[in-house]
Design a protein around this nucleic acid. Sequence first.
DNA 1: GAACCAAAACCGACCGGTTGGTATGTGTCA
DNA 2: TGACACATACCAACCGGTCGGTTTTGGTTC
Lengths: 199, 199
Amino acid sequence: MIGKVKAATKTKLLDAALRIIREKGYTATTIDDICRMAGVTKGGFFHHFKSKEDLALEAANHFHQMASALFESAPHNELEDPLDRLLGYLDFRISILSSDLPHCTCLLGTMVQEVHDTHPAIRRACDQFITYHANQLARDIELARQRHKPDAEWSAESLGLHMQAVVQGALLLAKARQDHEVAAESFRQLRRYLELLFR
Amino acid sequence: MIGKVKAATKTKLLDAALRIIREKGYTATTIDDICRMAGVTKGGFFHHFKSKEDLALEAANHFHQMASALFESAPHNELEDPLDRLLGYLDFRISILSSDLPHCTCLLGTMVQEVHDTHPAIRRACDQFITYHANQLARDIELARQRHKPDAEWSAESLGLHMQAVVQGALLLAKARQDHEVAAESFRQLRRYLELLFR
DNA sequence: GAACCAAAACCGACCGGTTGGTATGTGTCA
DNA sequence: TGACACATACCAACCGGTCGGTTTTGGTTC
């Protein structure tokens, strides 16, 4: 009626998983870690997830939902010119970087790098969601191409994936250096690339 | 006299570590895994490394040595124009992608993403070696800048790091999709960026 | 080159703590 | 009262690391 008072236990577990896995990686994250942060016992955990891998799959989906909502509701999506939306996307990503690292990194990239060879199901899920996001970008890239550079020889899909690669790589470097600025700089380089491409 | 007949045990352990960590990640790799592949027992392992973290540090260094030697001896380094060397570097990276994934991915990026928050020493080592490699690129970038675009407003260091970000991100996407081609495409996008920048 | 020796290299059984997972209870609400 | 949501207690496997012992190696002396 007045709205959900207590956050569902499952959501608390998923939020905790999101946080801890991004901090420590998938394998190093223990179920007890997640339970502790969520204030739930192991029994509760296994009531909602049938295994750790199952949690990872649901966490990937949970992250995807949150990220999609965040980027779709971002202000730059209101812009009329698809190229402005793309540049605005990068500016938005740069602005997000000011929050703490474990909060602004990508769960999908973190997990898939670690388990791509050992957990096929997780790999597939991460691949699917990353591809989804790349395709979202590719949509605007194609529109911008038609408007500004109709005879360009590169494909929108390829550029969309490249943008995702830069995002993942930049966040990785930020972790390595413990400094957001290197990621911001990389996003600015990518921004310059787009400007050169569409000019 | 005729050359080393048997590879030193320590080298065998490091090679095994390189391989398995890149496949399964640092945490999921057990010391027994490495011993099995190297044909060494646990006692032998702990004779050479005082802990698993110690192994990681030495493995990072080992990888750095190998990668440095590989890229420094690559044919593109003979080219006279620094810009050609940079483009040649990317072509070389694309050509390397034809070998199997666990053999052409970067140990440093794989490890640091996973342990940046939990193993400061490993993080520092990976950061150091990645930065070294970025600086190697930055040297040629600066030379190319002076020759082709002396009034450019971007810094060589920033672009060197961006190139490393693309490399890391592209390899991550390749793992996610189990397909080298996406990495090759990303390298080609980066190549186009360089051409646009210096034109 | 044989005999010797100390140190380095290597072995493999073992240990304590951890981890993913299970079996079984208990409270609550329709 | 029965289905659901969660807690408690527990387990077997595993993992990093230790330890006492054996083999290999390389230098020295005669």
